[in-house]
Amino acid sequence: MTGRGGERRGGWRARLPGSAAPARLEGRAAVLRVYGYMFHRYRRTWRGTITSSFLYPLMYLLAMGIGLGHLVNHHLAGASSPVGFSRLGGVGYVTFIAPGLLAATAMQMATNESTYPVMEGVKWARTYLAMLAAPIEARDVQRGQLLWIATRVAISGAVFLAIMAAFGDVLSPYAVLALVASTLTGMAFAAPVAAFAVTRENSTSFPIMYRLGIVPLFLFSGTFFPITNLPGWLQVIARVTPLYHGVELCRALVLGQMNAASLAVDTGYLACLVLFGVYFGGRTFAKRLAQ
């Protein structure tokens, strides 16, 4: 060390190559440094995620669409009532559920990615704590994690959409925007769930949340049948759940049956949830990580 006023060269440093670049706050934003770590780490571990990201959606489409869909289509075609296919927006069963599944799998994946990996970061592997020793703050960790989850959800959404297109279930060029919609749906879950997950000491509440929250939403938010089939009071509940709006949004875009008012309501509702989660999570992450 030479001098006392902040000059910081010499000594052991001189032996290390590239001594000219001290850490500073300029340069990449802290959020991107967190994101960069997750991206780099995923490059080492991505193989293990193929099943959940790509194969599950494909299996759902095959089972529900080809298997169950055949029965449903047969029934609707032979229906004596004038309703028939119009109940499904005038399309076959697979085409009806595919965009719903797009939204529902985004929800599932986002929820999964914002529970266990957050617990991993804060407690099991303590990777968040390593980040905080650098010029990175708790809210940067939160936002970097969310950005990474959004990337994962978007990638698997893109694959899902491509499979749908291959099956002939994409009816409108606006389907490209369904990728944004499904990612938004995922983040409407991920942001608040991560905010909650970071406050936990262990993972016991995660399966409960999944069983009491995610599974009922998956089944009753209009993914597999129009919610108008539900009793009135359940319809009311379904309409206030986030997944319902995600499903509606994705379906409208994929089938090309858009209506400006519902698009605005669905998008606004989901965006509010994301904003709430980001704001609330900024506080819970800071509270947990900076004591």
């Binding site: 670049a21 850490a23 340069g27 990449r28 440094r33 967190v34 770590y37 390593a130 980040m131 650098a134």
Partner: peptide, 9 residues
């Protein structure tokens, strides 16, 4: 990766 947290080139 830790070095990248500090944005070392």
């Amino acid at each position: 990766l830790y070095g990248r947290y500090f944005d070392v080139a």
